[in-house]
Amino acid sequence: MNLRIISTATAAENAQETHPSVGAEGQAHHEGGFPPFQTENFAPQIVWLVVIFGVLYILMSRLALPRVGGILERRSEKIASDLEASRDMQAKAQAAAVANNETIRLRREEALAIGREAQQNTAAETLSRRSRAESEASEKIRAAEGRIADAKTRALANVEQIAIEAAGSIVEKLTGSKVDKDRLSAEFRNVKSS
């Protein structure tokens, strides 16, 4: 690419041969000397340098640098605000943790109290139930004893009857005569009471 530029440049110089000043410069340029010190090369370089560097400076100072500076500022602001937010969040989380621990402690105490109360209630109920059950049981025992005594007297009365009848039938068998029932029971009572 460079070669092409050189050849076009040379061609251009040749074409400008008719123009006296440029032609002379082209000649001087080809005559040699150390290129950086050839004074006829100074003007075009300075002119283009001023134009190009001037435009570059304007582009940098008006457009590029404020933009990059803005990007950097925006980023540092974002990082700062994010850090701030995370610090807030952390503080909130810590406060929540403290509140949570407090709640847990209160609930545990409540639970213990409820447990104790339940235990006491249960104990009291058990006691009352037991005493009720005991009293019921003793009542039943008493009733049952009464019934037993009743049954006993009734049974004894029956035994008396049976004994009287047995005695009557024994006497009848032995003597062959009927004995008066009333007399037998009177006799029986005498025997029993004696």
Binding site: E40, N41, P44, Q45, V47, W48, I52
Partner: peptide
């Protein structure tokens, strides 16, 4: 003033 567009430009 010579303002040629050169390879330097």
């Amino acid at each position: 003033i010579e303002t040629s567009f050169t390879n330097a430009s």
